[in-house]
């Protein structure tokens, strides 16, 4: 065995204190192969046994969209920011399913792998991270379907790819932050697993998914914009139709996301030491 090949040539110091943030990040990088393996497991388990396979990913927003179409779409003339109705709905639902899916699975990622945590060492953050990456793969599949929906509904405007990339990147960071936070808290307080879905339900109605944020009264707009999903969903849709991004609301989303990320990383690192004792 070639010892120089290894990440552990330097002695490992085992002590009570938390390793530095930098050391943790370096370690995450050395474990990147395990991350990919965990992502592969996630995807394989989810899709291997259903014959619908990959199409299943897009089926959920498509069915939901059809439902909404049936209930609201025909009667109401809700504003859709100048987008074709299906494009408006599908894009909102797609982002929401990515975000809520990452949180729903992410919060359980540590508890569900208690067996691993109690018996093997690896950076625990890999488990919630693997969920986010797996959901990103889903999102990529849904993007292909979105392109199809756009073609079918004669969407004429050309999307701004940098705009899409930025909003998806921030949304991913936000999902990661909330995933890390809820996963860590769930280890200590097991009823978090029941609180999160309720919170998600509320958040869904507080986000411009099936309605446009232009419907929100101006007096409440500032409070509404504190929800980072508002700036991100609006931004994504603007980028989708090549409109200019609303920079202030996007910046606000970035600030909220970064704040959550710092909180999440701090809490996760704080609880990391005792996961194996509690999980």
């Amino acid at each position: 065995m070639d010892l120089t090949d290894r990440q552990f040539v330097r002695p490992t110091i085992i002590a009570a204190d938390d390793p530095s943030l930098w050391a943790s990040l370096v370690e995450l990088w050395t474990f990147r192969e395990l991350l990919l393996t965990l992502v592969a497991r996630e995807l394989r388990l989810r899709y291997a046994q259903t014959w619908v396979g990959v199409a299943w990913v897009a089926l959920k927003p498509l069915v939901t969209m059809a439902l909404l179409w049936a209930v609201f779409g025909l009667a109401a003339d809700l504003p859709t920011e100048g987008m074709p109705r299906p494009v408006f709905f599908f894009s909102g639902l797609m982002l929401w399913f990515f975000f809520s899916g990452a949180i729903t699975d992410g919060k359980d990622s540590l508890v569900a792998n208690a067996d691993l945590i109690r018996k093997v060492y690896f950076p625990r953050a890999l488990l919630p991270l693997a969920i986010v990456v797996a959901r990103l793969v889903d999102l990529a599949i849904m993007l292909v379907f979105l392109a199809g929906v756009m073609l079918m509904s004669d969407s004429t405007a050309w999307p701004s790819l940098p705009g899409l990339a930025v909003t998806v990147a921030v949304l991913t960071a936000l999902s990661t932050a909330v995933g890390l936070l809820t996963a860590a808290i769930n280890v200590r307080y097991r009823d978090a697993t029941h609180v999160v879905p309720v919170a998600l339900q509320l958040l869904m109605f507080a986000s411009p998914i099936v309605y446009s944020s232009t419907l929100v009264p101006a007096t409440w707009a500032w409070a509404y914009a504190l929800n980072p999903l508002v700036g991100l969903f609006d931004g994504f849709r603007a980028a989708l139709t090549g409109r200019a991004l609303d920079v202030p609301s996007l910046l606000l989303a970035v600030v909220v996301t970064l704040t959550l990320l710092v909180i999440a990383i701090t809490v996760f690192r704080r609880l990391d030491a005792s996961f194996a004792d509690y999980v």
């Binding site: 002695p11 110091i13 002590a15 009570a16 093997v120 005792s274 194996a276």
Partner: peptide, 13 residues
């Protein structure tokens, strides 16, 4: 094996 951390003391591996 680093699954859990010691409360005090240290080890070098």
């Amino acid at each position: 094996s680093r699954i859990t951390r010691p409360t005090t003391g240290r080890a070098v591996v």
